[in-house]
Structures are given as C-alpha cells and as structure tokens.
Design a protein around this nucleic acid. Structure first.
Length: 549
RNA sequence: GGCCCUGUGGUCAAGCGGUUAAGACGGAGCCCUCUCAAGGCUCAAUCCCGGGUUCGAUUCCCGGCAGGGUCACCA
C-alpha cells in the first residue's frame, strides 16, 4: 500500500510544515538543571474546584521551588463540553488563591514562545504528526460507526473479554487499499487510529514520582488519535503538547494512571522522549460512609467560588492544601511561624499516595488562625473586600465607617500582638458576627434565665450608674454592685461556697447585661463593647431590653 | 468483571526491622475567667486480616479483604 498517498488522502492539508521543523520552532528550554516545567491543563468545562487547586498548587510549587516554569494550557478539544467563560473563571479563581502562571493561555508574558496554548489552535501540529504516523504505517483510518463500536463492545462484554478496539476486533486495521478509498469516495466519516504494536501480556515497571514503582502492561488498544472532526483526543494532544512545550514533569490525577500504557506507546511511536510523571491521589469526599473522588458535577459546593463566597482566607485554603500535599508542611510552619509559606521546601516525592478526605474543620481552623494574625486594619480590608462582592447593601454601608469597624475588630481580634482571639473564621461569618454593633442589624432575641423583676432590676440599676469613662475594673465593680443589690453573689468564690444563699453569681448578672447589649449570652469583653457603642446606645439597649421582658 | 492504585486513631498523617507508634484538626476534662474565644495542662483513640522471612515485624514477601480509580470519536 502506498502510505504516502494514503496519508495525503486522509490529511489533505496543504499548509503543513515538516515534522522536524517543529523541533526547531520549539527548542529545548534554557533552564538550570533540576528546574521543572509543569503545566495546568484544564478543559474549559465549567468552574474549577478544590481538587484542581490542589493539583495546580503542586504544579506551581514544583516549578517555582526549582526555578522552572509553570504554564497554562487549555484543553479545549471537546467542543461539546465547552462552557463559555470557563477559562476566565479558572484564571480568576487561581489568581484569588495566589497561584500565578509564568506563561500560557491568557497570560501576558514574554515567555510565550511555546504556544498557541489553546489546543484548538494547534490543529496543524497534531495533523502533521498524525500524517507522519500514517506514512510510517503506525496509524490508519477507521470508518466504524458509533453503532458498530457499540456492537463490538457488547459482544466483548458478553464474552467477558476486555472491551475496546484492539487485535482482531480492530476491523478497520486491515482494510485493503480499495476499501479505504471506496469509503473515502463514499464520503464516510473516519477517525485516525493508532496501529498499536503492543502486547497486553508484556508487563514492566514504570517509575512514578509519587507512587514509586508501578506495574504496567503494554498497550494494545488502537486508540483514536484524531477524531472525525480532525481534532485530536487527549492522548494524542498530550504527547505532542507536552513534548513541544517541553514539559519535564506531568503532574496529573491518578485517574490517568490507567491510560499510561497508551501514552508510553504514543511517545515511543512519535519518537519523543517521555516527561516524568507524578500521579496525584485525588481529593475525596465522604459520601454515605464511603469515600468518593471530588466531582465537579456532584459537588458544586466544592467549587473555588464557593470558598470565595464563604470568605475563607485565601492563603488558608492554600495552606490547608499544602498540608495535604506535603504533610511536613504543618510541622515546618509550627517551627517557622513567621516565615513565608513559599519558603517551605516542597517535594513532589513527599506527596501522599492515598486519597485524603476533605476536612472542613481543619480548613476552618487554619483560616481562623490566618485571620487572627492579621492586624485589625488588614482584617478590615479583607472583610470589606468580601462585602463589596458578596455582602448586602447594608453590609457595605456598615463597612464605609472604617474607624468604627477597626475599633470593633481591635476588640474582636485582640488589639495587642500576643493575646489574639480567634472569633473570625471566614469573612461571611465575621461580618455577621459584628452585626450587633449596628442598630439597623441588631435584632436580639432576649432569652433571660431570670424573671422579669430581676432582669429589670439589673438592667435598670446599671443604666443609672453606667459611665463610659470607667475602665474595665471600675466597670466591673459597678456590675458587682448591681449584682449584689439584686441578690447575686458579688464574687464567684462566695457563690461557690454557698450557692443557696444567692440567686446566682455575678457572672449570671453579667449575662443579663450581655444579652441586653449584644443579644447573645456570649461575646467578647462587654465593657469594651459598651464603650464602642457609646453611652447613648448602650443605655438605649438596656432600656429596650427592659421593655421587652 | 479485567487491570491499576491505596490501606497507621473519627480526619490529615510521621514512621521506613527493635520507638512509651510523633504532630495537627476534631472530641473529653481541668485551669484561667463577667460569658464566649484564645491560651496552658491532661486524657481517650490507630498499625485491615491471615500466612510466611526474621531473634524480632506497623515496616520486607505472598495471599485475602476493603476502599478508590479506569475500561469513549470526555478530558
């Protein structure tokens, strides 16, 4: 068979350049030894979730801790699943979490020598190499219809054989020259398949950067290289792109492990040297007692936008992911509390081998800690940023008064450097937490544990003598005075000695005041809260609580 | 079902032939205390099972089992 002629008939493009030329167009990168070139290669099929960030972070760290390059490639070969705005969303989300690319799609960089970075725009390159493989007899056209393929699959699974297009099942593999041209003349659509030379019974070990030695067999599937629309499949595009974009380390989810044999054969058929691979375990979610891989479709609440909306501190999300990526990170951080997290020596080889269950408690804890280390001013800026995007109109009005909010935050966070409160876990909750400082969002539900007379007594007496000029101890002395007058023990120790002699302790009396002022039995220092509110509003709240019982 | 990956407390996990089997989150308790938060201290809780190898296995080997992944003209 005249393969040259066949290739020209199958790939009639007349604007292709020679395959060798591409080696010159995309030369080896000039990088230090050990520098890794990694990439994030999402398909633009919607939002990205925590699992993608996890992977992106691994890529970013692997590149940037070795002086390498991290680039963005868009795998948009499946037009059916394309979602508008997905690329922008990916970039925006990653940027929010501090993940930056050095080159690639939509990245303005002088380094963009290896593009285009959208696979749809790379059709010529793929077709060039598909043509080459056909000429070499390593690829062939397949005219099977979807129905025929389904029938083959059905027959195979009935006989409990491996499904797929391989060996004797690959009907189009041995089509005669006449048959092929007949089909072409009839205008039948076709795909280009790899003519696999592998033997599934041959087994060897492959070294993965995370999993270590893994056992694989040769590939024997005649997988599709070019779909009937002339666009490549993932496998084919992967081999060509990662070769010509000079990727050194492919970090991808372990769901790709099973197609590794295909990729090994592809690189070999194309005569390319393989990059190294790191197959990451997937982030899991607990689902009815079992673990399950995080899914874009099933877990919309794990979209990165969800974390933005909930207001988790972005660095906290990254740090949480870092603890999963390299568990040594946590200890390192404990030892270097002031160091930049990027100074941690990330190692791909130290990545965990088994899928971690996503732990919201842990994320919350880290977020709380990160926020607690902010200065009140920084925290204000963070919360304000959140209100601008996700808050209510009322929130935005509240946050217009910077001085007032900062004063509140000094209380809520602890003004000095060492005694920090950790009340704010994320922006959304933090903004709600301080709602009671604003009259238009203060909507208390009074639930006093004492009778109306006692409540009114405490509130009324305190309203009489409250003076915002009092310092903490003077303020508390007045609380004690009021408490004693209403039958509470002025000292907790006294109350403990003889509980029956009192109706409660000073703590219980303070609770009445606290509920009246804040609407809650729990709050930070009440004395400070009242001084922030000021005399008028504090007393007004005491009075209105009196009226409500 | 075939093939592949994984298997240490509730969760994330150190460990890499001999350890009282780290640490963090969560839980319980105590202290502190006007409540809460924070902080300090303490406690409970783990090597999937069965065979080997070995003086000795969480660690090495084999076999089960369990969980996950994958078997497309999707990535």
């Amino acid at each position: 068979m005249d393969l040259k002629k066949l290739a020209a008939a199958l790939i009639p493009d007349d604007d292709l350049i020679s395959p060798e030329k591409y080696e010159e167009i995309y030369p080896a990168r000039l990088l230090e030894k050990g520098a890794e070139v990694t990439r994030l290669a999402p398909s633009p099929t919607g939002f990205i979730h925590l699992g993608n960030l996890y992977s992106a972070l691994a890529d970013e760290r692997a590149a940037h801790t070795t002086g390498g390059v991290f680039y963005l490639r868009i795998e948009d070969t499946d037009l059916k699943r394309k979602v508008d705005g997905a690329v922008e969303s990916v970039i925006r989300s990653l940027k929010y979490f501090g993940i930056k690319f050095d080159e690639g799609a939509e990245i303005s960089s002088k380094l963009n020598y290896y593009g285009p970075y959208y696979q749809r725009q790379r059709a010529k390159i793929y077709r060039t190499f598909a043509k080459k493989l056909i000429e070499e007899g390593k690829a062939y056209p397949c005219f099977c219809t979807e129905e025929e393929l389904a029938a083959i699959r059905a027959a195979q699974s009935e006989k409990k054989l491996t499904t797929g297009y391989y060996g004797a099942f690959a009907k189009c593999r041995n089509l005669t020259e006449e048959q092929i041209y007949e089909n072409l003349a009839a205008g039948k659509p076709y795909v280009i398949r790899l003519r696999s030379s592998g033997d599934i019974s041959r087994r060897f070990t492959f070294r993965d950067e995370i999993k270590g030695e893994i056992s694989v067999t040769e590939n024997d599937q005649d997988i599709v290289l070019l779909k009937s629309d002339g666009i490549p499949t993932y496998h084919f595009a992967h081999a060509i792109d990662d070769h010509f974009m000079r990727t050194t380390l492919v970090i991808r989810g372990e769901e790709w492990l099973s197609s590794l044999p295909v990729h090994i054969e592809l690189f070999s058929a194309l005569g390319f040297r393989m990059p190294r691979y790191a197959h990451t375990c997937s982030l899991m979610k607990s689902d009815g007692g079992n673990k399950r891989k995080l899914s874009k479709r099933k877990d919309p609440e794990l979209s990165l936008d969800y974390y933005r909306r909930a207001g988790y501190y972005p660095v906290a999300v990254v740090k949480y992911l870092m603890t999963l990526l390299n568990s040594g990170f946590e200890e390192w951080e404990l030892k270097n509390p002031l160091a930049d997290w990027r100074d941690f020596k990330f190692k791909v080889s130290k990545m965990g081998k088994s899928g971690a269950l996503f732990d919201l408690d842990k994320l919350s804890d880290i977020s709380r800690t990160e926020i607690s280390m902010l200065s009140p001013g920084e925290c204000y800026a963070f919360l304000k940023g959140w209100t601008e995007e996700f808050g209510t109109e009322k929130d935005r009005q509240h946050f217009a008064s910077e001085a007032y909010i900062v004063k509140i935050l000094e209380l809520v966070m602890g003004a000095d450097g060492k005694k920090r409160r950790k009340d704010i876990e994320r922006a959304e909750q933090g903004v709600r937490l301080i709602d009671y400082f604003f009259d238009d969002s203060f909507s208390p539900v009074y639930s006093f544990r004492y009778g109306a007379d006692t409540v009114k007594g405490v509130l009324g007496r305190f309203a009489e003598i409250y003076d915002p000029a009092d310092d903490n101890s003077a303020w508390f002395a007045k609380v004690k005075e009021v408490a004693a007058a209403e039958g509470f023990a002025a000292e907790t120790s006294e109350y403990r000695k003889d509980p029956s002699a009192y109706i409660g302790s000073v703590a219980d009396a303070a609770e009445i005041l606290r509920i009246a002022v804040t609407g809650s039995a729990n709050s930070p220092d009440l004395c400070t809260i009242m001084s922030i509110l000021g005399k008028e509003r504090s007393i007004a709240r005491l009075k209105s609580a009196m009226g409500a019982v």
